[in-house]
Design a protein around this nucleic acid. Structure first.
Lengths: 360, 360
DNA sequence: GCAATATCTGTAAACGTTTCCAGTAGCTGT
DNA sequence: ACAGCTACTGGAAACGTTTACAGATATTGC
């Protein structure tokens, strides 16, 4: 019937232009709400509706240089702490009109670097990355990255990176203080790998807290393993064999704590009467356990939100309720914005795994 | 110094062509491994390396019509069953060279339809969607979708959709059989909304199993609420108030079961001696609970994997180890491939929440 | 060394948009 | 009805690739 355009694929701006008898420029303008004569607008809208036109986002990205996609890379989606981040990132990103690309890196450095480098492919407009080991290569790759990157975690202080961190050493300290203050004297530690930032910090906080409370550090009371439930189970067995008199276990995350709890149950040891258990992350697992776990809230959700907001700001999405006066507009063009570090305060959440519930 | 190209943005194929003194066509050919004279290849590679060239995936997508992105849309990333799917989908997609876009729909129909329709934007090459309510609009939208869609779930039998399903009615039946066969007589049900496919199926399986074992259906023993931990806690309280003599609770998923377990603990009721509890999904929560939960494995991971493989096949990625002879190549072009339904078999996993552990 | 061939290379078009620029049509005021 | 202005419109270029085609080299056989 008609000349062309109706042919094969989905309708484009060209099909609409033909059908409406206008130029593609006019179609584009109508569709983007630029001022147009009433008659033109109506014909274009009609044609677009009849054809069921939907703009091609790839073409739009190519022209506009923005994909409206963000990437989140984390070590392990099996860890509820990261799930909490994903959820929050998704919400904020979606609200700002961005889609979310997900990467699981298994905490493998090469994979993490690959994700950073892949920004050069222009597949997404920005990256939130959550590395548990931060090498000089990480820092360099991120500093050189071809799109904004926000790190969730704690890079070395001299690294000029945007990041959202939490002081998990203090978090660990708070947990151990709490254990000591509720009368525990032989407090064990089940930690993740100490060559990771979280592992190192937890170790540091644990030791400091012991000193603070006049307890001595005893290597026999510590175990180092992976951040996972099964690892917690095994480590707890080992510790109990070695030191049957321990009266508390502080675990570097909730997964480890859950594992430890299983071991204690299996051995008929009462929580918290015989042994108290505390975890970190305050993830859903802390509430899922029995007894509910005392845990240090490291603000996963909040960090996810803050990271996303910071990233959006770097992307020039004036982060709406920024509260501050809109001053920083005067950027001398070549000065990169000063890296910003945001810190959240860890918070101890006490539950029945360390303190018996008062009977009802 | 040089004429042009070095200017602003990242290096393109044009910059390389200039630097190497060849045409952009040659650059493209070298970079895509097409046959080239040795000298040309070397100069191009050298120039590309010096400039740190990375191909622009958006431009590539526009030309090629493929984005190498898949989308996964699920109701709630807080549910570990979906997390299991995400993880598996990620792995398979990544192995095939696809990135993964994530959508959380909160099980809101409009959001789900929007995701399906957004395929027309060509943002991703295919979609895996996991709706818990499947309306005629869903079916129609998916049938008309402008890219392949695989449903994880159970659309009505007459819907011509690719899907990966599991018979959760039978799953529920198996769980209730097990409870009855271990001596329980007053078996309660905590279900999710019955206007969802999973809710309806669980209800059906529960009733069938009761009949099978000569138990009568008692509305006073059932509660309907949301698929969430807090909902499980509340529902269990309600049921126990109403029927203090119940001796088992079958829960429509692990989150509800976990909630129920909390309630039982809080009331000092012993599991499984006084009341047995069974859940569904066999998620990490089932192992996290104490006592570990008997649960019906609905194959979340496997369904995620199968769905992704099916989707990749629809995308023409010859799914490698397909085993079959490569016959179906002869497609008469207009016949759409016959919709395929894959079903996984639910499997009961018995743990201590229904059967006391034999003492060691 | 020459023709015939095989191999490689460059030009240009295409993918679907947005946007600059110049031109044209429509208004306004008289 | 006309000048002058504004408001809209169409042509064309651009974003960074891939690829068909034709044209240019290099290779081979004698």
């Amino acid at each position: 019937m008609v000349t062309s355009g109706a042919g094969s694929g989905s309708p484009t701006i060209v099909s609409i232009a033909e059908r409406a008898g206008v130029s593609i420029a006019s179609v584009s303008r109508v569709l983007n709400g630029l001022s147009t004569r009433r008659a033109t607008e109506e014909r274009v809208r009609k044609a677009a509706a009849e054809l069921g036109y939907v703009p091609n986002s790839v073409a739009r990205s190519l022209k506009g240089g923005r994909t409206r996609q963000l990437t989140f890379a984390m070590p392990d989606i099996g860890n509820p702490a990261y799930v909490a981040m994903v959820r929050e990132i998704q919400v904020v990103a979606k609200a700002a009109g961005y889609r979310l690309l997900l990467h699981s890196t298994d905490a493998v450095t090469e994979d993490e670097l690959a994700v950073v480098h892949s920004l050069a492919e222009r597949t997404s407009d920005g990256l939130i990355i959550c590395p548990i080991r931060i090498t000089p290569q990480h820092v360099e790759a991120i500093e050189q990255a071809s799109a904004p990157v926000v790190v969730i975690g704690s890079p070395p202080p001299d690294a000029a990176l945007d990041c959202v961190q939490t002081d998990s050493a203090i978090g660990a300290q708070k947990a151990v203080w709490h254990l000591a203050d509720t009368g525990r004297r032989r407090i064990a530690l089940i930690n993740g790998p100490v060559d990771t930032v979280p592992g190192r910090n937890r170790d540091e906080g644990y030791r400091k807290a012991l000193t603070d409370r006049g307890l001595s550090y005893d290597p026999g009371l510590t175990a180092v393993t992976d951040f996972a439930v099964a690892a917690g189970t095994a480590a707890a067995h080992e510790l109990l064999n070695r030191r049957p008199d321990l009266d508390a276990i502080f675990c570097a995350n909730d997964q480890l704590a859950l594992g430890a709890v299983q071991t204690l149950h299996a051995r008929g040891i009462h929580i918290p009467e015989d042994v108290a258990v505390a975890g970190m992350d305050d993830s859903v697992l802390a509430r899922a356990a029995w007894p509910p776990l005392t845990s240090v809230d490291l603000c996963s959700s909040k960090r996810g939100r803050l990271a996303t907001e910071l990233l959006l700001e770097r992307l020039g999405e004036t982060a709406a309720e920024q509260g501050e006066q809109a001053e920083p507009a005067e950027h001398p063009e070549d000065t990169p914005a000063a890296p910003r570090r945001t810190t959240t305060e860890p918070r101890l959440v006490v539950r029945e795994s360390t303190v018996p519930a008062r009977s009802a």
